[in-house]
Every structure is written in structure tokens, then in C-alpha cells.
Design a protein around this nucleic acid. Structure first.
Lengths: 294, 294
DNA sequence: TCCAATTCATGCATTTATGTATAGGTGATC
DNA sequence: GATCACCTATACATAAATGCATGAATTGGA
């Protein structure tokens, strides 16, 4: 190995990568927990060391030079290798004490996870649990969480997934609200009802249509990014919402809309990283979640 | 990107890599131009940062732990990415001044390269040339050289190779030595002659046999790793040696053995790295070598 | 068994890098 | 066009890493 060729400061490469990814020295400083002068000096030092001008200093912002752009792919590869080192190192941990981060949708996090974690506390009191309540998908690859609960099967080969039991979802509302819309008996009776959307309304509508409901965009008057907020709208009598029967069973004063309507079945996947699952701490939480939710 | 996961000191990863590759902290320090205490502290800091004991300190030497061994692949990948950054950065250099390192066999380096470099000096006086005279093959991938002259076609896809003219090699000796072995006229007359081997004798013998010479291992009494040293043995009348006609033509007082014997033809390849050849300085030297030696 | 060579660990002075505070400049918005 | 928000660059005091010198321990060979 010719060590001289790679004798530039590797931390400066990370500074360059962070600056490219975050868009500015200041943003990179915020993201990495360093300061803007430090990042600026590190990038300048890297330019000096490898003899390539990476950024064009024009006005308030930096733009990549063409030379710099041709290095970015290799720099990203270096960052990904660093990430794999971090993953593998975490996977080597055989300590039964320490942090495990679980990512799940906010509904799962709020209604189903707490009792499961309570049982885990009795079984492994040394484990610290952080619930990353997020409806975004890309948590595991970004290393924001160690274990994720998802409703779609992950495709990445570096992830391992275990399918839990399928759940059934039904339409729910308050008796009060149902009376207000005339106690619907057939799907056509729902044409005048309000439906609660989780996420963007355009995203939710196809699911309702797939259930055989004759709805249009106008039926979704109230919506929220948060499933918990949406469910609270249902509980306040603002409209009809979809919910898994497990969560609905935990909610008093809520009734099923048209009990004859067939349910929507959806899967739940327990996901982790191939290299992380070798950690006995993460493995223990993974198996506990599989047993309790499966 | 979760920057927190890769917030360990990346230079410490290089220290770990160097220690694994070189076998000890002291050897790594010598190889990387740092000191042994620095390397030791860096590896210890990395262990602390990622929570993995990398080395077992037993006696005077360190041995990888199983945990450490499982990180090595990822660490190597990071080093290779760093190497590609270095390559790409060198390739971005559009400066016509600076160092270009040429790797070639010692015979080529000593007899054929100097006049070519003299012409290059007149054409591009700002270019500094280092001739890495080595019979080892793996120079370009180790980044010991920017351009290499080889007699076998390189197979790696990241290398680019241009074939130069084929050369003819003949047997040579001093008239004095030929008289001593009875001025051989047919190949069977060579059975009692001494042949000079370049490299290991077992490696050289098959080439002589392929030329149709009825030789055994006993015919190779004098040999050297260095082709230049071997050729000087021929010039001193120690035996018969193979040499390209170009080099032999530069050597006075040497005659061809049995002029009727057909030559051995061998190719010469000019090789560089795909990412390096984009450097105008390296490109210029590459093209000059191709023109002068082709 | 002893000696020489080589290894890793530690104390200390010096060099180097970092953060804080601040100045200077640019682009978007009202 | 003035203001605001945001960016980068620089000076200086402090914190951190490095190299040197040295010590302690182990291996291999005479």
C-alpha cells in the first residue's frame, strides 16, 4: 500500500462530504455538530492537500467545481464505507445494556408500542429504548434507527425483514357523527360523509376508492400528516377514519361504520440491518417485538 | 445522512488499517510517516469511539480480535475509496508542471528510458520525472507509479493499456566466451554453455526451453533479480544471455549467438490508470512514451 | 542463559486544530 | 431600495493532538 497517496486528512473528506450533502458550510456545521469556521478550514485544507479546487466561492454560497463534482462519487463511497464500519461495530456489541432505537409510524408508536416496551422493561431492564416516531421510510439506511416497523416489505438486500401477522382495518366514527350523516347502511350513503385523511388527501383517496367507497376529493375535508392527530379528529366526531381493529379496540366511544363492510388487510414487517442484528441487545428487542406483535 | 453515526475520527480508521496491513504499530508508523505513540493512541481512541476492542495486546505484538477482524473488510473498503479520491484528484490536475512517476523493468529503465526522457525534457521542461525501476508488477494499483511499461497485457478494467511495437530478443555473449565454448553452430552445441538467468532460475528455464534450446537447470549457473546485473554478467563473459536487439545494439563488444537462430518476439504495453490519464501532465508523458517507444 | 533487537506504553514540551466572537458580503422580500 | 436572513472569512484564546525521549516487556538466537 502506498500510504503517501492517502495521507490527506480523512476528516477533511467528511467535511467536504457534509458540505456537499447539506449545501453549505454553515448547514454542514449544524448537521455534524462542528462550527462553520472549522468546516471551512477543513475543506480549504483538503483542496490544498489534493491540489483540486472543490468549490467556487461566488457570493454567499459555494458551488461545486467540475473537478469537485467528479470527486463526489468517490467521497460518497468513502462515507458509505464509514457507515458500514459504524454498523458492523454496533453489530459487534454483545452488551445487554444500552440504547436501541425503534422507528414506527406514529399510530403504532403511540398505541401499540408502549405496552410492548413495558413488557420488555421487565425482561431486560438494562435496555434503553428510543422510539423514533416518524412516517418517513428511509430511517434504517440513514441510521436514524436500529429497528423499524413498516407496512410495506423493504426491498434492500442489506435489510432483513420478518413478517408479522396481517391486520384488518375498518372504518370507524363516533355514534354521534354517524347519526348526523343519517346512519349509513350502504356505501352510497357515505357520499355525503366527511372522511379523515392521514397524510396528503390525494394520497389517501385511492385507498378509499380501492375499498369500494364512492368518494371524491371533496369527501376528505380534514387531514393531517399525523395518524394520531387524524384519529383524534375521528374521536371528536369530525368524520370517518380508517384504523386497524387493534387500535380501534383501545379507543372507547368509537363504533364501526357499516359492520358488514369487508376489512382492508395490511401486513406489518419488522425490519433491521443485517449487520446490526448480530448485536445481542438489538436482537433481543427484535425478537421481543416479533413475539409480542406477531 | 446521520452524521452522528460516522462522527468517529476517520484518520483513526487509517491508523487501524495501516496497523493491520503492516502488522504492528511500529511498522505502521514507519510506513505512514508518523510515530508509534501516535498510531497507538489513534487505534486506542478508535476502539473507544466505536466501542469495539480491535486488538488483543499480548506480549510485544498485537493480534486482531474476532470483532476487529469483522471490521477489516469495511475498513479496507474505506481505504480503497480514499485511494480512488487520490487517483481522481491527480487526474484532475491540468498543470503541465509537476511529478510523473514511470515504472519499468530495470533494463528498460537503464537503457531505453533515459534518451526518451531527454527528449521529453526539451518538450516539457516543467515536468519532473521519477523512474521507479522495479520488476514487480503491481505498481499502478498500489499507486507507486503513474505510468508503467509492461511486457504482459494488464487485465484490470481500471487500467488502460496501449500496445507498443513488438520487440525481438536474441541470444548474446562476448566473442571471447563463444570461443571458449567452441563457437557453437547448432543448438546442441549449447548444451555445455552457461546461461545467465534474470530472476529465479526456475522461472527463466521454461523460456529457454520454449526457444528450442536443449537446456537443463544446470545450464543456469549465474542469475540475478536484476536484468541489468545479468546483462553485465554477459558483458563480462560469464555466459549467454537473452536481450532485446535494441538494448544489445547499445552494448559494444557483444555478438549474437548463432545468428541463424530465430528471435523471440515480445510485446511492450504502456499502462496507466483510467482516472490518472485525464491529467494533462500524465497524458503528455504517456503520449510521448508511446510515440518514442512505439 | 544471556544479549540484542524489536515491540508497546507513558511523561512532557511543542505544534496544531478548534470554538467564540465578529466583520463583511449577498440575495430575497416587502 | 432598505431590511432581514443567511452565508463565508478572519483574529484570538483555548483545547487537543503530535513528536521526542524514555521505560518496560517480550521474542529469537548465540
Amino acid at each position: 500500500m502506498n500510504w503517501n497517496a492517502i495521507s490527506f486528512d480523512w476528516n477533511h473528506v467528511r467535511a467536504f462530504l457534509a458540505t456537499v450533502e447539506e449545501g453549505s458550510l454553515s448547514a454542514a456545521a449544524r448537521a455534524t455538530g462542528q462550527t462553520q469556521p472549522t468546516l471551512g478550514r477543513q475543506v480549504a485544507a483538503l483542496e490544498e492537500a489534493i491540489g483540486v479546487t472543490l468549490f467556487e466561492r461566488v457570493g454567499r454560497s459555494l458551488t461545486l467545481t467540475t473537478s469537485g463534482a467528479q470527486l463526489v462519487d468517490h467521497v460518497r463511497a468513502m462515507g458509505e464505507a464509514a457507515n458500514r464500519i459504524s454498523l458492523a461495530a454496533s453489530g459487534q456489541s454483545q452488551s445487554i445494556e444500552g440504547l436501541v432505537r425503534i422507528s414506527a409510524s406514529d399510530v403504532l408508536s403511540a398505541y401499540q408500542l408502549p405496552p410492548v416496551i413495558a413488557q420488555l422493561r421487565d425482561r431486560a431492564p438494562g435496555i434503553e429504548v428510543e422510539v423514533v416516531s416518524s412516517n418517513a421510510i428511509s430511517d434504517l439506511l440513514r441510521r436514524d434507527a436500529d429497528i423499524a416497523l413498516r407496512h410495506i416489505r423493504p426491498e434492500q438486500p442489506e435489510l432483513i425483514a420478518r413478517k408479522l401477522a396481517d391486520s384488518d382495518a375498518y372504518l370507524y366514527a363516533t355514534p354521534d357523527y354517524l347519526a348526523r350523516v343519517g346512519n349509513p347502511k350502504v356505501v352510497d350513503d357515505l357520499k355525503a360523509a366527511n372522511f379523515i385523511g392521514y397524510g396528503a388527501p390525494d394520497e389517501m383517496l385511492p385507498h378509499f376508492v380501492a375499498m369500494g367507497l364512492p368518494l371524491t376529493r371533496d369527501n376528505i375535508r380534514y387531514h393531517s400528516d399525523s395518524g394520531v392527530v387524524g384519529w383524534h379528529m375521528v374521536r371528536q366526531g369530525l368524520g370517518i377514519g380508517v384504523m386497524s381493529e387493534h387500535v380501534a379496540a383501545l379507543t372507547p366511544d368509537i363504533v364501526r361504520v357499516m359492520p358488514g363492510l369487508p376489512p382492508v388487510s395490511f401486513p406489518t414487517w419488522l425490519v433491521s440491518h443485517r449487520e446490526l442484528i448480530t448485536s445481542s441487545r438489538i436482537r433481543l428487542v427484535f425478537d421481543h417485538l416479533a413475539k409480542m406483535l406477531g
